[in-house]
Structure formats: C-alpha cells, structure tokens
Amino acid sequence: MILQAENLTKSFGGLRAVGGVSFTLEAREILGIAGPNGSGKSTLFNILTGIPFGPDSGRVVFEGNEIQSVAPEALSRSGIARTFQRESIFPSLSAVDNVLVSVEHSGRRGSDRENEAAAIAALDAVGFPQTLHNAPTATLPIFFRKTLMMASALAMSPRVLLLDEPASSLTPGEIEHMKALILKLREAGISILLIEHVLPLLMTVCDRLVVLDQGKVIAQGLPTEVVADPKVVEAYLGQAAK
C-alpha cells in the first residue's frame, strides 16, 4: 500500500463536502474516483494535497508517514503531484517554460541545461509534440494543454499522481490517446488516483473504483461490480442518463 486515507472530512459552514471518506491505493494501481457533480471528488483531491486546504479531520498516510499536516510544497517534493480540473498553466509562457517552473520547484535544481533537459523529458513522457515546445500555451488546443499539465506534474517525479478529469472536453480520439497515456504512466511505476466522468475511460484503465455521493463513499470495488450497484446507478449513472 502506497497511500491510505482514513475517515477524511471537510466542511464549509454547514455543508459537509467530504464526510468520512476512506480508501487505499496500492503501488502501480489506478484507482478511479467517480460520482455526480458536487459529490466531493475535487474537494477530496484538495484535502489530500493541501491545495488549497487540508482536511478538518482524518488521516492521510503516504508510504507509512502521516502527511495531512505537511505543507503542500513539501508534499509535492515528497512524491505526490496532481493536475487540476481547471487548467493551471501560465498562458503567456511556452510549454517548456511551464514545465521548467515545476522542475525548478522540485527540489532537484541543476544547471539551466539540466533543468531544460528535465522539462523536455517530462514533455516527451506525455507525448507532447516537439514542434509545440516553444509555443505560447494560450494558443494550444485543449488536449495539449491537458497533457502539458500532466508533464508539469511529472516534472516533480511523483510516485503518486492525482489526475482531475483529464478527459473532460476531449474528442473521442483524444480520449483514446489519454487512455493510452494513463496506462503508460502506470507502466512507468506511478500509482494513480483518477477523477473522471467519462465512464468508458474509467472502466478501461481503472483497477478499482470508489464512487462518492454527497461527500460519502457509496460503493467501491472492481469497476464492473461497482457500476452495477443500484446505489451507483441511482446516484451517478441515473443522473448521467438524464
């Protein structure tokens, strides 16, 4: 087991966004986090990473150490990185310079040449075209902006990667590329937590699924078993079908 969450909670005033969520993530596993809009998925990622806030209560254990009180920057340097549902890029910078920001904050600063090589290696790892390395990121199509965020996360050399809706707004062909990329990252030894609404992607790449509704876990297990659970059909699949 590489990551464990125990009874995590987070409230905003009288609203409990995450209520007693527990799960485990094994080494080289892809664990999907599913659920309808507003079910607490992104809030869960926020409290796992401390960006922009931590949990009200509960424990997060990474490689045997409690991390729920660790500062976000120290946590990212320790081996946990994430992407965001909303694009977190510097639009006026080139793709290489975006990734260089992560390289230079990874705690492994080298020479300018070494840092640039590390940034290019991260871009290559996600299949980012070399012809776009120096393009302003504001001009990039959405698929490449998403893979750029993944490259920036990979530049931190994570052992656990949290991906928040990487397939959102992509075309069917781009979703297939994203599936292949996620599986490639797992083959490279990275454990992945994956939030996604695109069910075919979740069913294809995930070893297990955890489904949230109103901040609580309503089902978890093998994907084929979870999507057949009546509570999931009602809370998630039923909503999606409307």
Rank of each mutant, 00 (worst) to 15 (best):
S106N: 00
S94Q: 03
S92D: 13
V103L: 02
F62G: 05
V60A: 10
H105T: 14
E66N: 01
F62V: 09
V96H: 07
E66G: 01
A81E: 06
A95T: 04
E66Y: 00
S76I: 11
L100G: 07
S88G: 11
I51Y: 08
V61A: 01
F53M: 11
S57K: 05
V61L: 06
G79Y: 09
S88I: 14
P91Q: 02
G79K: 13
L100H: 07
G58M: 09
N98C: 07
I80C: 06
S92V: 12
G64N: 05
G58Q: 11
V61K: 00
P72H: 04
S78D: 09
S78K: 11
F90D: 04
I89Q: 08
F53Y: 14
S69F: 13
L93K: 05
P91E: 00
L93V: 03
F90C: 05
G50H: 13
S57H: 09
H105W: 00
T83D: 05
V70W: 09
V99T: 04
S92C: 05
G50A: 12
D97L: 02
Q85Y: 06
S76W: 00
V60D: 03
P91M: 07
R77S: 04
R59A: 12
E63A: 14
F53E: 11
V101L: 10
H105K: 07
E73S: 13
S57Y: 04
S88H: 10
E63T: 10
V61M: 04
T83V: 05
V61N: 11
T83I: 08
Q68C: 09
L75Y: 13
V61T: 10
S106Y: 06
F84K: 00
Q68G: 11
E87D: 09
P52Q: 14
N65K: 15
L75M: 12
V101E: 07
S106W: 02
A95W: 04
I89Y: 10
Q85F: 06
S88T: 15
A95L: 09
N65M: 14
D97Y: 05
Q85D: 01
S88F: 03
F90Y: 14
R82N: 11
F62P: 03
F53D: 05
R77L: 02
R86P: 04
R86V: 15
V99W: 00
R59C: 07
P91D: 05
E87N: 13
V61D: 11
S106H: 07
S88W: 06
S94T: 10
E87G: 14
S94A: 06
E66F: 02
S88P: 06
A74C: 09
V61S: 00
D97Q: 13
L75C: 10
S69T: 14
I51P: 03
E63Q: 14
R86K: 15
P72M: 00
E63K: 11
F84H: 09
R82Y: 06
G54A: 01
F84N: 06
S88C: 10
V70E: 01
V101K: 00
V96T: 12
E87P: 07
A74F: 10
E63S: 13
S69I: 12
V61I: 15
G54P: 03
